[in-house]
Nucleic acid binder design. Structure first.
Length: 573
DNA sequence: TTAGGGTTAG
């Protein structure tokens, strides 16, 4: 009687607190055989991932006297469903080490997880276990194997696993299709697609997504129009394709007409606007969203951080915390980047304590943004420690380091890091050279800077206008104005105001009227507000005693300023 | 089984 009563209560639990109450009842009455039902129910009712639930369930599992592969399987599946793939694998291993035989659910889930985190070694081990435990006749497990090998690019293995399936379902076919798409064999993929006996939405979405990723929107769109039933994912794939091609207008048209938008649709649009620098449109979408989840906040914070609005990024971050949404390492990397733009080094300490308090893992990307923060703030030791603790040092982390050296005029260190990355076969990029050149420039090492600039072509890098700007600045400061001017004339692209501005600045330092005039005229042409440049020129005239010219320039400035003020008040009224 | 959020410059 009590048994069925407890079962009844369990099945009606809607929050963790209730299952915990019933659990206490079970234990008191010695009904431990109902614990698997409790585990199942608890995980079923947990719609949003919660670490507390995992701890709670794990505690129950550890207390089992008998082996329960059902309950363990529930947990493994729960973790996989909530995209905690590393944990899925580690819990599966824990289960195995406890001597619990796997269930088909557990195997299918862990195979998916191995595929997602590209863990071939464990994937193969689990394949062997599946064989040993006799699950290789189960279509779900077999399909899981096709999925694993497909995702990891072992198409031959995937094909073999697929051929072994006696009764293939559409998921089996789709997994194979994904394998061919992953390995870039479009021809074979198309053949598989055409052979699928009952194509479902996913079959269509997979093939459309492959065209969209390549930027072949013609094919993507015509298949999209041809498909019989569209899911929100189909629309999102198409929108994502247009976003990647920077076709925001078309993306917006589909976004506006799609029948059922979900958060993925909104995030795809917001990140599209982020990349095209349209903060206003991103903001407008964000404001109109009804239910904002963590990923939406992340997308919008990144939008601010990447478009030079660090203060807005931080404001939104505190709003996020106030809404009780927990940030993770992805959120924090953007927020650290925002703080780095503001030069607030104290935020690094905050992040480090927040991370330990909330059990967030500092991964390489978050470390890199912290390296940038500490280097800009001059805490070389902390940055260096983070760099040496990285799992994988890459172009970005080294560039952040070198960039910091550049800002702080540490040419020797910049050069040391540069040589280190070359030795490790990590390719430098344009940012690396921006850092390196500015390090030489700030230290006045003209010869080294020159060599470095010339060496860019050895790494197949074409200097940008900014790199020329640094060179002009460096040569100019050293008084080599002729060389600086010659360098500008040799530029393969149109020199920007930064380049001419550097020459103007140097002309001022060395009281050179000739180059000052040339540089200033170009700056005025390129920028809407010429007052700063003109005042520089006036100072040059003054320094060589050409008072009349100085006055003429200042008069011209007054007139322009007056006109600007008039224009402003005209607009205001 | 498909679709969404991150790090270095300006």
């Amino acid at each position: 009687m009590l048994d069925s009563k407890l079962r009844f209560f369990l099945q009606r639990c809607v929050v963790l607190g209730q299952t915990k109450q019933v659990h206490a009842q079970l234990v008191v009455n010695g009904f431990n055989h109902l614990e698997p039902v409790l585990v199942h129910q608890t995980l079923q009712l947990t719609k949003e991932f919660s670490r507390n639930v995992v701890y709670y369930v794990k505690r129950i599992l550890k207390g089992f006297n008998g082996l329960d592969s059902f309950s363990w399987g529930c947990l493994v599946r729960f973790l996989s469903q909530h995209r905690k793939f590393k944990e899925t694998v580690s819990v599966y291993i824990e289960m195995h080490n406890s001597g619990v035989p796997p269930s088909s659910h557990a195997i299918t889930s862990v195979l998916r997880a191995c595929g997602k985190i590209e863990n071939l070694i464990d994937g193969k081990l689990i394949h062997a276990q599946a064989l040993k435990s006799g699950f290789c006749g189960c279509v779900y497990v077999q399909t899981g194997l096709v999925g694993l090998y497909s995702r990891l690019g072992y198409i031959e293995m995937a094909k073999r696993a697929f051929d072994d399936i006696a009764e293939k379902n559409t998921v089996s076919w789709n997994s194979l299709l994904q394998g061919y798409l992953e390995s870039g064999n479009v021809y074979e993929a198309r053949r598989v697609f055409d052979k699928i006996p009952e194509k479902d939405v996913v079959s269509w979405n997979l093939i459309i997504s492959s065209y969209a990723k390549k930027g072949d929107m013609g094919n993507a769109c015509s298949l999209f129009l041809a498909m019989p039933l569209k899911s929100p994912a189909s629309w999102n794939i198409l929108i994502g394709g247009y976003v990647n091609c920077r076709e925001m207008k078309l993306a917006r048209t589909y976004f506006d007409t799609m029948p059922q938008k979900n958060t993925v649709s909104w995030i795809t649009m917001i990140s599209g606007y982020t990349k095209s620098g349209d903060v206003q449109s991103a903001e407008e979408l964000f404001k109109h969203m009804f239910k904002k989840d963590k990923l939406v906040y992340d997308a919008m914070i990144t939008c601010y951080a990447q478009n030079g609005k660090p203060k807005d990024a931080l404001k939104l971050f505190s709003q996020m915390l106030n809404s009780d949404i927990q940030p993770d390492e992805i959120t924090l990397s953007s927020v650290v980047s925002a703080n780095s733009q503001l030069g607030d080094i104290s935020f690094g300490t905050w992040v480090e304590s927040y991370v330990t308090e909330h059990g967030i893992k500092i991964d390489d990307l978050l470390s890199t943004s912290l390296i940038d923060l500490y280097m800009k703030g001059g805490d070389f030791a902390k940055a260096f420690k983070l760099l040496s603790n990285l799992n994988k040092k890459d172009t970005v982390s080294y560039s952040a380091m070198i960039m910091g050296c550049g800002i702080n005029g540490m040419a020797t260190e910049a050069n040391r890091f540069f040589r280190e990355m070359i030795k490790k076969k990590i390719p430098p990029n344009l940012v690396t050279f921006t850092g390196l050149l500015s390090a030489y420039s700030h230290s006045g090492l003209v010869q080294e800077g020159y060599e470095c600039f010339k060496s860019m072509k050895d790494y197949n890098l074409e200097p940008s206008a900014d790199h020329y700007g640094i060179m002009v600045d460096m040569l100019g400061r050293a008084g080599r104005l002729d060389e600086a001017y010659e360098l500008i004339k040799s530029m393969p692209m149109q020199p920007n105001a930064g380049v001419w501005g550097a020459l103007l600045l140097a002309s001022g330092l060395h009281n050179n009227v000739e180059f000052g005039e040339i540089a200033c005229s170009h700056c005025v042409e390129l920028e809407t507000d010429p007052t700063g440049y003109l005042s520089h020129l006036a100072n040059i005239y003054t320094s060589v005693g050409r008072w009349d010219d100085a006055r003429n320039v200042r008069d011209a400035m007054e007139e322009k300023k007056l006109r600007k003020t008039l224009a402003c008040s005209w607009v205001e009224t």
